[in-house]
C-alpha cells in the first residue's frame, strides 16, 4: 500500500512539466526515504534525478519499496487536471497495475480522482559518485534561463568558463558570436537575486544548448539554480525544491577528440 499526500500539489505539477519533454517513460521509486526518480533521455546524454523526501509529505505511507513505471506525458496530462492550489494524493495498492491521483481543492469542495495505468519500464540505475566540483555557480534561475534562450538563438553549443572574473557563457554560429559574463554579485536586496561563483580551479566545458533549454523548464521550481562544473565530468544543474528535495539534471560534455 502506497499513500502519499502532498499539500503543495503544484510542486508535482511543476516537476512533471520540467521533465516530461526530456524523458518519455520512467520508474518512480518509492521508499522510506522518499519519492524519487532517475532517468536518462533517449540518447543517454542527459540524466534526471528527482528526490521528494518523505518528510515533505503531509502523509507518507510506503509499506515496501516499490517502483512504478509511468509514461511522463500521460502523468503530466493527469496532473494538469489538478488546480495549482490542490492537495495531491498518490495511491497504489500492492500488486496493482494502476496508480490513482486524487486532487482536493483547498476548501475541500471538489475532490477528483484520476487512475492511470502503470507500465513496465526498462531502466538502468546509474551510480552517481560524490564529486568535488571545480566550480559551483549559484544564480537566479530566471537569469540562467534567459541566457540559455538568448544563446540558443545564435549557436548550438555553449562554452561555460569559470574564472576569478566570474562565469562566462559563450556561443558561436553562422550569424556571429555571443558572450555573457556574470560576475559574482552579493550586494542585492534579496538573497535569491545573488550570483555566487565558488571556484576551486578554473574550468571550461562545452555543452549542447538544447539540453540546457530543456533543463530550464525547472525554473518555476526554484528562484535559484546551482550549476556545478568539473573538467571532463557531466555538469549538474540543480533546482532545489523547497523543504522537500531537488531536481537535478546531469549533462555529459562535448569533448575534443
Amino acid at each position: 500500500m502506497l499513500e502519499l499526500r502532498l499539500v503543495q500539489g503544484s510542486l508535482l505539477k511543476k516537476v512533471l512539466e520540467a521533465i516530461k519533454d526530456l524523458v518519455t517513460d520512467a520508474n518512480f521509486d518509492c521508499s522510506a526515504t522518499g519519492f524519487s526518480l532517475q532517468a536518462m533521455d533517449s540518447s543517454h546524454v542527459a540524466l534526471v534525478s528527482l528526490l521528494l523526501r518523505s518528510e515533505g509529505f503531509e502523509h507518507y505511507r510506503c509499506d515496501r519499496n516499490i517502483s512504478m513505471g509511468m509514461n511522463l506525458n500521460n502523468m503530466a496530462k493527469m496532473l494538469k487536471c489538478a488546480g495549482n492550489d490542490d492537495i495531491i494524493t498518490l495511491k497504489a495498492d500492492d500488486g496493482s497495475d494502476t496508480v490513482t491521483f486524487m486532487f482536493e481543492s483547498p476548501t475541500q469542495d471538489k475532490i477528483s480522482d484520476f487512475e492511470m495505468k502503470l507500465m513496465d519500464v526498462d531502466s538502468e540505475h546509474l551510480g552517481i559518485p560524490e564529486a568535488e566540483y571545480h566550480a559551483i555557480v549559484r544564480m537566479p534561475s530566471t537569469e540562467f534561463a534567459r541566457i540559455c534562450k538568448d544563446l540558443s538563438s545564435i549557436g548550438d553549443t555553449v562554452v561555460i568558463s569559470v574564472t576569478k572574473e566570474g562565469v562566462k557563457f559563450s556561443t558561436s554560429g553562422d550569424i556571429g558570436t555571443a558572450n555573457v559574463v556574470c560576475r559574482q554579485n552579493t550586494t542585492v536586496d534579496k538573497p535569491e537575486d545573488a550570483t555566487i561563483v565558488e571556484m576551486n580551479e578554473p574550468v571550461s566545458l562545452t555543452f549542447a544548448l538544447r539540453y540546457f533549454n530543456s533543463f530550464t523548464k525547472g525554473t518555476p521550481l526554484s528562484n535559484t539554480v546551482t550549476i556545478s562544473l568539473s573538467s571532463e565530468l557531466p555538469v549538474v544543474v540543480e533546482y532545489k525544491i523547497a523543504e522537500m528535495g531537488h531536481l537535478r539534471f546531469y549533462l555529459a560534455p562535448k569533448i575534443e577528440e
Binding site: P234, A252, K254, I255, E256, E257
Partner: peptide, 14 residues
Amino acid sequence: VNQQRQITTFFAKK
C-alpha cells in the same frame, strides 16, 4: 571537433 559524450561514459550502472 567536439564529440558529444554519453552519461554512461561517466557514471557506471549500479
